[in-house]
């Protein structure tokens, strides 16, 4: 690659990073609020220090909440760890999805992987199997301090804060994921809509009976519907896009 092409590529990546950071702000606000409730919930069970370092070094909401729930219910470290692994399992297909778009030496690829959170991953989806990894990193950036700061507020000011349920905080993440779904992931004809319905149905069917984490990773099987037909998403469809 010539020096000029390299320079342009770097500029494009920086532009993606900035665009991602801007797009990631609403999610960061939501994450910050949810982190407050994590701080409140986890501090009596893990202690203030571990609660905080969890948010700094694990930075995975469902795994953090899930593991605390297991400990709070009387489970031991192995059970809490199992819950955490199951809840993080969806990062495996998500990581496989972005892999072709991630270049560079192995430690750079690992770094991109560490920036993966649900909202950023979904917002970095460009369709047809392509992702913008720099956009994804940018979108995660605002969430990181928000997550840590929110946790700290929950840990140290927990008794002053209202019950998260009183302000409808528990509806925040599902509403956000639905907004991402309706906001862009259903483009490209009927197939994404069918896959979404199938994935939702699988998850709903398994929620009453399977441990936390399993319904979501099982729902990724709905994407196998893409094996039928030729191009998967992006094909012209005479029925048109129901949302766009």
């Amino acid at each position: 690659m010539s020096a000029e092409t390299e320079q342009r590529a770097r500029e494009r990546r920086r532009a993606s990073l900035r665009a991602g950071a801007k797009a990631g702000i609403p999610f960061a606000v939501a994450a910050g609020l949810v982190a407050v409730s994590y701080g409140v919930l986890a501090e009596p069970i893990l202690g203030a220090t571990v609660t905080l370092v969890m948010s700094v070094f694990v930075f995975a909401g469902s795994a953090q909440f899930g593991s605390v729930a297991v400990l709070g219910a009387g489970g031991g470290v192995p059970a809490a760890l199992a819950a955490s692994v199951l809840l993080n399992a969806r990062y495996i297909p998500m990581g496989i999805a972005i892999a072709p778009s991630v270049r560079g030496r192995w430690w750079k690829r690992a770094a991109y992987g560490e920036a993966m959170i649900d909202g950023s991953w979904a917002m970095a989806d460009r369709g047809d199997g392509r992702f913008d990894p720099d956009f994804m990193v940018g979108a995660t950036l605002p969430s990181y301090p928000a997550w840590i700061g929110g946790t700290a507020i929950g840990v140290f000011a927990g008794d002053v804060i209202l019950d998260p349920a009183d302000i409808g905080l528990d509806a925040l993440f599902p509403a956000f994921f639905l907004a991402l779904l309706f906001g862009g992931e259903l483009r490209g004809g009927r197939t994404p809509v069918i896959v979404a319905l199938a994935g939702g149905a699988i998850a709903l069917a398994l929620t009453p009976v399977a441990p936390a984490g399993v319904p979501v990773i099982a729902a990724s099987a709905a994407a196998l519907i893409g094996l039928r037909g030729t191009g998967g998403g992006g094909e012209p469809d005479i029925e048109g896009d129901p949302v766009g």
Binding site: A97, L178, E185, A196, G199, S220, A222, A223, G232, G233
Partner: peptide, 10 residues
């Protein structure tokens, strides 16, 4: 892979 996002988000 292109269909993972709709499945997982739903």
């Amino acid at each position: 892979v292109a269909l993972l996002a709709p499945a997982l988000l739903a």
